[in-house]
């Protein structure tokens, strides 16, 4: 009996996951269907671009700086064991472009903007603002989800560029100024080891992550039920699901791309 109940529970979980995935896929499809339809609400869209992009700039730059610095420090510790300190620049730049930049930027945007999106849409949902939109013959996917998903898709890669650049600067600072690696060697090895596709694949990843986190956050927000507690629940879910999805998709993309 216990075993059967356990199996049923597992089945429920799996079905729930499938439903979530299906709903998200539907949301994405809806976004795509609404994308070409007027009105285009340029100003509204720019508001979202600013919210997700410009206002995340500081936190992304900060995390980029410190992740680059700590990468340099850690890599130096490893490289010193076989006298490969000169590879530090390349190692930092490779890690930043391929992995740390896209993932950390996406996670920071999830924490800052994804949670806010879920909370905002959740609140709109429970205060009937979403119904009000529908009653005014405006589709919430068109008005609420589409600009956010699009902004995520556009802004997360751009934020990643900033993150990577500042991370490399941070790595340079630690490697050259603090650990005393020759600046010429540092730059040379970096340029030598990193190829353009490292950068572009990283940016492609962050585009996917941006899409994912915006999609998940909007989906969760629009699903909110009840009151403040419901909003809190979907906000937490939005962050947790986005972070998990980013890391899982990161592995799959890395396995596919590189």
């Amino acid at each position: 009996m216990m075993f059967a109940r356990l199996l049923a529970r597992l089945g429920d979980l799996f079905l729930g996951l499938l439903r979530e995935l299906g709903e998200m896929a539907m949301l994405l499809v809806n976004c795509l269907l609404w994308l070409p339809r007027p009105p285009y609400r340029i100003r509204h869209f720019f508001g979202q671009l600013e919210f997700i992009g410009v206002r995340s700039l500081f936190i992304v730059a900060l995390t980029g700086l410190f992740s680059g610095m700590v990468l340099a420090l850690q890599a130096y510790y490893g490289f010193r064991k076989f006298g490969g300190e000169s590879l530090l620049g390349g190692a930092v730049a490779l890690s930043m472009t391929r992995e740390i930049g896209p993932v950390l930027t996406s996670l920071m945007v999830t924490a800052r903007a994804g949670s806010a999106m879920a909370a905002e849409l959740g609140t709109m949902r429970v205060t009937e603002q979403v119904d009000a939109l529908l009653a005014m013959a405006v589709h919430p996917v068109h008005y609420l989800a589409l600009p956010r998903v699009l902004s995520g898709l556009i802004m997360v890669p751009l934020l990643t560029v900033v993150d990577v650049f500042i991370g490399i600067l941070g790595g340079y600072f630690v490697g050259v100024m603090l650990l005393g690696i020759n600046p010429g060697t540092y730059m040379q090895k970096m340029v030598e080891m990193v190829v353009a596709s490292d950068l572009y694949n990283g940016l492609f990843k962050s585009m996917v992550f941006g899409l994912l986190l915006a999609l998940i956050s909007c989906h969760q927000g629009l699903k909110a039920r009840g009151g403040a507690q419901g909003v809190g629940l979907v906000t937490t879910r939005a962050v947790v699901y986005s972070a998990v999805a980013i890391l899982i998709v990161d592995y799959m993309l890395t396995a596919l791309l590189f």
């Binding site: 905002e120 609140t123 709109m124 205060t127 009937e128 603002q129 119904d131 009000a132 939109l133 009653a135 005014m136």
Partner: peptide
């Protein structure tokens, strides 16, 4: 249709 919601449901942004 015009729909007046219980709490107004003005878009608060």
């Amino acid at each position: 249709f015009g729909y007046l919601f219980q709490h107004g449901a003005l878009l608060d942004s």
